[in-house]
Every structure is written in structure tokens, then in C-alpha cells.
Amino acid sequence: MRKKVIFVLCSLCAVLGFFTILSVNKVLNSEWELPSAVSSEQERKRIVLITQELDTPFWKLVGEGAASQAEREDVGFEIWGSYGKNQEDFLKQVEIALHSKVDGVIVQGNDTDEFQQLARIKAASYGIPIITVANDVPVEKSLRKTYVGSDHYAAGELLMEQLLDDMGDSGEIVLLGDGNLEYSERLRLNGMEESLKQYPEIRSIYIESGSSDEEAAAAAQSALNQHPNVDAFILLDIRQARVVMQEISSRTELEPFFLYSFDDGSDASELLTEGKLDAIIEQSPKEMGAKSVEMMMKWLRNEVVPLDSAGYVTDIRIVEGKDELP
């Protein structure tokens, strides 16, 4: 009896003790991972990349390139911006960045007065360098330090070479573009028009497509109506490519037309593989991102002063659609 009682009590003690120790361990050894504190003396440079098209794969690639470069350079880096070309939000972000006195702003150029105002006056008063990337704003308007991205004029010329290869040196082409053209788009247009001057047999018509999908569809309609003999469409804004093509295919066969565009939107590679687009100009977004951060750091470290205000050009190449392949 006595032994039994002692045995039962002892085993109870052992079991309870085991669980208590487990519990105490759990309570005392909490794995609280607080973010490590930062030494306040050594402040890292902070660079912000601001775009108004956070949602497109093109800008995602730019962001990736910039982020990996920032990591290599060991600088604080963040991507800010707005979605779907939200101008207001974009400008606000730029303003916040300037007020926050970041060390450098890499920005998707925006050819508006407000942006130029911010870039010229605010940035200058805070002494913050601005580098435009992918889309440029002329230096005299923005006082940007430099531009990193494609040579859009050359891109226009390159596309025209491809057109001539495909179509021959006579025909009618329609250029569809936003009513409110970006600086880069204007450069493309210029490039194309300049190279077409040598071929009087080719008639080019520029039609404003507006900024919304409906307007783009209407523009495509009127182009087909007014110019029934059109041979090629060139879309300055790839975002409108899908709508325009839908419109064309609802009227007639898509196949006889040559369709070209510039890669800075989401649909480009998809439409290319589907064979609907005949060719696009492909840019190097990752390279742009990396290069822009690199140039910014060079400026901040006073390694290259002044930066080449003409800009640092990244690669462009023409990519043909599938059905063009033999």
C-alpha cells in the first residue's frame, strides 16, 4: 500500500515535472525575432525609383535590375510609384521623395508641367539629383542629371528598317499614337518619319488614338474607314495593341496587315508569340535599372562629374513575330 502510494505520487511528479519543464521552456525560450537595430551614426544613402507603371512587366524588370544593383552598391533602395499611369499619385510620390530628402531620385520621365516644376524647383532647392530612366524629359526642362534608357529615335529608325524589309518601299502605313505623346514617343515618331522621308512611295498617316481603350478602338475604325488600302499599323503605345487588333480582326483578316510596336507594356511578348504582332522593338529594362542606380551612385560619390547629360543608351533590338519565321 505504502509503496503503491509513493510510486503513484512519484510517477505523477515525474509526468507533471516533464510537462512543466516543457512548458517553462516554451515560455522562457521565445523566438522573438525583432529586426536588428541599426547603428545610427552610419547612414546609408537612400535612392528611390519612382514610376507610374508599377504594374507592367517592363517596369518590374527595371525595378529588379535597379534593386540588384543597389544591393551590390549597398545603398538603401525602394521602388515607389503609381499604378496604371496615375499621374496625380505619381507626382505626389515624387514630392514626398523630395521632401523626405532622399539622396537620389530615379524617375520615369513624365513630360508634364507639374513634373518639370517639381524636378526643376523642388529638387534643385533640396539639392537632390534626378536621373530619368526609360522615358526621358529634356534636360533643359527638367534639369535631370542624365538619362538612362533606349535611344528612342534610333528605335524608330530601326523599326522602319524592319518595315521596309517586310513591306517593300511602297505602301500606306498608319501610325497610332496617344494624343498626349510622351517625349520618348515623340522621339520614336520623329525617328520613323525622318527615315521615311527617303521613301516617297510610302505614305504615312498619323492618327491620334486617345488614351482610353474606346478611343483607341474608334481610332482604329476610322483608320480602316478612311484608308482602306493601308498596309501596316505602327502602335506607339503597346497598351493599345490588343484593342486595335481586336478591332481590325472584327472587320477583316488580321494577316495581311503588318503590325509593329515598341516593347514597354505587358502584352508585347504574348502577342509576339501568338504571331499577331509582326515585330517589336525590345529594350533592356534590367540593364536600364542597374545602369541608372550605378550612375546615381557614381554621381553621389563624385566619381563622374558631371554625368553625360545626353544620357547613357541601353541596347535595343528588333524581335520578329513567329509567323514571320520561315
Partner: peptide, 18 residues
Amino acid sequence: RNADNEFSLTNYSNMIES
């Protein structure tokens, strides 16, 4: 400040300064 919020807190602080 910590490693995670260093960037935004610096911005914040500068914003206050501005």
C-alpha cells in the same frame, strides 16, 4: 530605427525636418 524600417524612418524624419 531597425533594419526593416530604416529607410522609411529616415524619410519620415527628413520629412519632419522639411
